[in-house]
Amino acid sequence: MSDAPMHWQTLPPRARTMFHLASLARFGLFWLPVTAVGTVALASVWAWTYAMALGGLWIAFQLLLALWLPALAWSRWAWLIRERDLMIASGVIFRSVMSIPLSRVQHVDVQQGPLERVFGLARVNIYTASGSGADGVIPGIELADAEALRDRLVRVEGDAGV
């Protein structure tokens, strides 16, 4: 993993803010209500004090993750187009470097959700014939860069090796 060339493209700082917002939204809309329900359910079999303590610990843990992980994830996302392949590096706990030969790209999606539209960012999904969904994903990339990357990837001709 130390073979990082000099021209890795990183995500713009706005993507970090977007990751934080998305993470906090997930925390507030999913983890908070789920933990509340779980705590009430636990309280029916345990003492309230224990249930509340466990629920509080779990919420604190999730909040810590929501505040800490997005910045780390943002710093780990990087991509690089080389002569024959696209490299994508990602992952906080489990790190991954994906190499997709350009001639294998079947199609490319540029997606914008509501949050991404607010920030002027986009998500690029790169598909090959491997049939397991998108092989490569780059979230939080500038829209113009996403479209340029898409055009670059679909311009390559090849037999797709299938």
């Binding site: 993993m1 706990i93 790190r95 991954s96 470097v97 994906m98 997709i100 092989d135 090796g161």
Partner: peptide
């Protein structure tokens, strides 16, 4: 016939 190559590392492997 390879479509993509991925290198994966968990925390212990790192």
């Amino acid at each position: 016939r390879i479509q993509s190559v991925q290198i994966v590392q968990g925390p212990i492997l790192v």
